[in-house]
Amino acid sequence: MLSAQSLAAIDREVAKYPADQKRSAVMGALRIALVERREAGKTPEERCLNTEVIEFVANYLQIPPVAAYEVATFYNMYDMKPVGQYKITVCTNLPCALSGGVNAAEYISKKLGIAIGETSADGKYTLLEGECMGACGDAPVLLVNNHKMCSFMTPEAIDKKLAELN
């Protein structure tokens, strides 16, 4: 279900922990599975985690499927719902709001024509509001697909970023 490359990456995660503690690698393994699905998926439904892939990860780590499922649903960066090709998460928490975080979210929402929490009709973008990313000094900040942080996202910087993604 996962590529040889993903499995090798999961093995590297497993090697970080004591031999009898493979469960510790479940967070990394689910992240790796999610990245593969995002990159390979053609539709929003194919880009998120589902019970089959979670069960596969659980079996691979020899832990009960529910143990992997509860991790996937507890941590909010695992996409459990259909998601666009580019998931944009804007921090609107207080320190960011004081430096334009809320304005940035509104600007993107207007520009893409989708409300916060929505995915564009073409399946290209999902816009989310996020909690603290630990980069308040760089506000406004946003994350693209969980892993790419973009700092100082003024309207001009947002225009540039969206053009790049396009």
Partner: peptide, 21 residues
């Protein structure tokens, strides 16, 4: 060990639970 979005894991015993998967 890379977290995946939970403020509570900054609490030290929650962090340990998370490290245990």
């Amino acid at each position: 060990h890379h977290g995946y979005g939970a403020y509570i894991c900054g609490e030290e015993t929650a962090l340990l639970e998370s490290l245990e998967g």
